[in-house]
């Protein structure tokens, strides 16, 4: 299938982009690498009047360390994160997560911001950045605001973004030397969207012990309770209580999380 007709603009500054997104009547959509939006356009599941291509805005393509965080511009591609070569206070976690996203040809175009804005519950960044405790820096007509990942993803394909806003960057807190990262996706095929994701960050240096279950029907489940790392039964019960529904449907999520926990347990 071919996309329905749309107009296109490629502003060079963030202000121009915001102006384009603001002046329209909601028919404008920002686009970066078009790796999530492209299929939806081609299938005519999305039919925007105007695509605002934000990949030509230099500041959205930066990777930098800012204080105790890695700040990744919205238009940084998965492949760039995968390949490293940037100062990284997060111990290489973004590179490892990026390397598992879809396929290299998709990673070369797809961006961290685009993935978050799309907010597929099965997306790697939705799960991983929630577990990492990242903040999303949002730019809009009224300036910038920072939203914790746990609040940013509101539901399946739903974010906290308001009309006219775009993701500018993601701020990932530095991990301590003792931090351990566990990440397990249940996929039937390599590169397929996950059916159940378990992500665990154990960073005793910063007092973080976070379990995340993603790729369920809604927003990720976040469990910030150090006791749950050791107590499988309590963890399963907590996840089950949050996910609800059919035990058979919950099961892969429990398994994914259990295996992710095993990766952080020495």
């Amino acid at each position: 299938m071919k996309a329905a007709d749309f107009d296109y603009a490629a502003p060079r500054t963030l202000d121009d982009a915001l102006a384009l997104l603001a002046r329209d009547d909601g028919a404008a959509r920002p686009v970066a690498g078009s790796q999530s939006l492209g299929p939806m356009l081609n299938l005519r599941l999305a039919q925007p009047g105007l695509l605002v291509d934000i990949t030509r805005i230099p500041e959205l393509r930066d990777i930098a360390v800012d204080g105790d965080a890695l700040v990744v511009g919205a238009c940084v591609t998965h492949a760039r994160l995968e390949d490293g070569g940037y100062p990284d206070p997060t111990g290489g976690v973004p590179a490892r997560v990026a390397a598992g996203i879809a396929y290299r040809a998709v990673r070369n175009r797809g961006t961290i911001g685009g993935s978050l804005a799309h907010a597929d519950p099965a997306a790697d960044w939705v799960a991983a950045l929630t577990a990492l405790g990242a903040d999303v820096i949002v730019a809009g007509p009224h300036g910038r605001r920072s939203v914790a990942m746990a609040d940013f993803i509101v539901g399946a394909f739903e974010t906290d973004l308001r009309p006219g806003e775009i993701i500018a960057a993601v701020r990932i807190p530095a991990l301590s030397e003792r931090a351990r990262w566990g990440y397990v996706k249940v996929c039937r095929k390599t590169g397929e969207f996950s059916h159940a994701t378990g992500a665990v960050l154990a960073d005793p240096g910063r007092g973080v012990a976070r379990c995340v279950v993603a790729a369920a029907s809604g927003r990720p489940v976040v469990l910030d309770d150090p006791r749950l790392l050791a107590d499988a039964a309590a963890r399963d019960a907590a996840v089950a209580a949050r996910l609800g529904g059919d035990p058979a449907a919950i099961r892969p999520h429990l398994v994914a999380l259990r295996r992710a926990v095993a990766q952080v347990t020495p």
């Binding site: 490629a10 078009s34 492209g38 081609n42 492949a79 040809a105 175009r109």
Partner: peptide
């Protein structure tokens, strides 16, 4: 770099 030409729009390749 390898890319999918079916979900990349020509207009974005200026």
């Amino acid at each position: 770099e390898p890319a999918r030409s079916c979900i990349t729009y020509a207009v974005a390749c200026d």
